[in-house]
């Protein structure tokens, strides 16, 4: 998806949907755990309209073992917010059962909110480590992770968030993606399956409109000698708190 604006209205081009880039990094991190541990299973869990099915099949093509989709016509009408999404995903994780680790992209590309992982960790009642760049070691009871500056350990089960530049996601295997579309491996759940009523998902926030950012005036030159120009530059950058 890309966003652009014209003079009067904001259009969001919704012709093509992609997997959130940070989620691909999270998937890659999960697949690396599977590479090391033969008995590990990677499950791609999606929430949203039926088109999310494509994203889950792409995940299968990259190496995930199973795909699960939470989809319900009631959700589209409700416009569920992050609070409801966290509740649904937590219910699904419990339903899958025996899950040790949940990995999420740290921030969504479109909204940039970064709100869901924290809410989900709380809904699950699990500890969370954010901005994990690599999983160093997993034991039966804990996971040891490298973050940007520190390295931390969390008891399992745990939720980790993965930033967009954490790793290089592997390519899709052609044969696998063909199989992903041939077989019916995507299990679909609706609200009844998860035992959640639409009343529990009333959104607390709702996007009511869009607005343009203020116009930028480009092309301003700082006059005078180099000394004066640099001095004026430093003053202006400080005034804007950019330095």
């Amino acid at each position: 998806m890309t966003g652009y604006h014209s003079a009067e209205r904001i259009f969001v081009n919704r012709e093509e949907y992609i997997i959130n880039p940070a989620d691909l990094n999270a998937l890659e991190m999960a697949l690396r755990v599977k590479d090391e541990n033969d008995d590990a299973q990677v499950i791609a869990l999606g929430l949203g309209p039926a088109r999310v099915d494509n994203a889950l099949r792409e995940a299968l093509g990259r190496g995930a073992d199973r795909g699960m989709l939470i989809s319900d016509s009631a959700l589209a009408d409700l416009k569920t917010d992050a609070a409801g999404a966290a509740r649904l995903l937590a219910a699904a994780v419990h339903e899958i059962g025996d899950v040790n680790l949940v990995l999420c992209g740290a921030v969504a590309l479109d909204s940039g909110a970064g709100e869901l992982p924290g809410r989900l960790a709380h809904a699950l009642g699990w500890p969370m480590l954010s901005e994990v760049y690599a999983i160093e070691e997993i034991t039966d009871t804990s996971v040891h992770c490298a973050q940007q500056i520190v390295s931390s350990e969390a008891d399992l089960p745990a939720l980790l968030t993965v930033p967009r530049d954490a790793n290089q996601p592997r390519h899709i295997y052609g044969a696998r993606v063909v199989n992903a579309y041939r077989g019916g491996e995507i299990a679909a759940w609706n609200l009844d399956d998860l035992g959640i009523s639409p009343d529990d998902l009333e959104p607390l926030t709702r996007v009511s409109g869009r607005r343009f950012p203020p116009e930028r005036t480009l092309g301003t030159r700082l006059e005078g000698s180099l000394d004066e120009a640099v001095e004026s530059l430093v003053t202006q950058l400080r005034a804007r708190e950019l330095i």
Binding site: S111, G112, E202, T205, V207, R211, F212, P213
Partner: peptide
Amino acid sequence: AVRPVYQGEYYEVVNFAPHWPQ
């Protein structure tokens, strides 16, 4: 609340349901 989306490409206006705290 007004918040930037798509890395500041445009802003979205968020309204809250009458449910507190917000």
